[in-house]
Design a protein around this nucleic acid. Sequence first.
DNA 1: CCTTGACCTAAAGTCAGGTTTAGGTTATAT
DNA 2: ATATAACCTAAACCTGACTTTAGGTCAAGG
Lengths: 145, 145
Amino acid sequence: MYTIGQVAAMFNLPVSTLRYYDKEGLFPTLSRQSGIRKFGERELEALRVIECLKKSGLEIKDIKQFMSWCQEGPATYADRKALFEARKATVEAEIAKLQKTLDMLRFKCWYYDVAIQDGGEARLETMLPDRLPQDVQRMYDNAHS
Amino acid sequence: MYTIGQVAAMFNLPVSTLRYYDKEGLFPTLSRQSGIRKFGERELEALRVIECLKKSGLEIKDIKQFMSWCQEGPATYADRKALFEARKATVEAEIAKLQKTLDMLRFKCWYYDVAIQDGGEARLETMLPDRLPQDVQRMYDNAHS
DNA sequence: CCTTGACCTAAAGTCAGGTTTAGGTTATAT
DNA sequence: ATATAACCTAAACCTGACTTTAGGTCAAGG
């Protein structure tokens, strides 16, 4: 049995985070001795699962739900899979969006590269005085949306 | 000249958002007639830039900084480029992280696929009764970290 | 005249996942 | 016995980009 401070050291987490997880119901089997939390193997295992699921980007409430399904056994396999499938779709969408963002950023970096190279002659400035950056960005933006 | 309601309709944005942008200093040249905001071409242009930069994931304060640099002319090209380079690096890191997350999620989906297929015979359950999901996830996790 | 609608402000609320603070209790070491 | 370290709770605070609320001004239409 471990105290909250020992567990915090083991997992390199702030004590306050463990209290927060407990408050959110992530340690349903946690026991206490005269008010003080005693973490056993079940809680360490729970914490390992929490750390793993957090890496998948699951929210606290989904982690709680998942752990509850694990208690219920094989009958909930389909539910658990659905949770991960949903999360997978979300992450794929996020990546696709970031890729478009990255395209835009690459263009902007390229644009300023050219502008800086041309600096002495100010060719870009001469072409469309004073409004060029915005306009070119918008052109690119429209072309990609 | 347009009222805040007309601009909101044009850009399909809530009025409250335009007031918020104004409060954050994103319309430095905005004028008023007896207390009421009057949006001109400069403000519409500013809004187009804001919408574009938001798509790049820039924060409000960075957008403000960028627009201020634009006012200062070519001398700030390098600053503007540095802003986009920094954001580009951040987005690239986010994508890399999400790719690892996606790897993990694909594994979890695969795992439950197998578990569901095997459902009748409960082979996986028999192998490591009651603790398998967590253990396998951790194995995978360790293998990928 | 009076109501409706569009405008205004300042301040508080929202979301998540914690962190910090204030005030109090328990355990351990001297 | 007492000091101090580690524990406890409830509640406030944090970030960011808004949104909502409460209360007020003003112009036009019926």
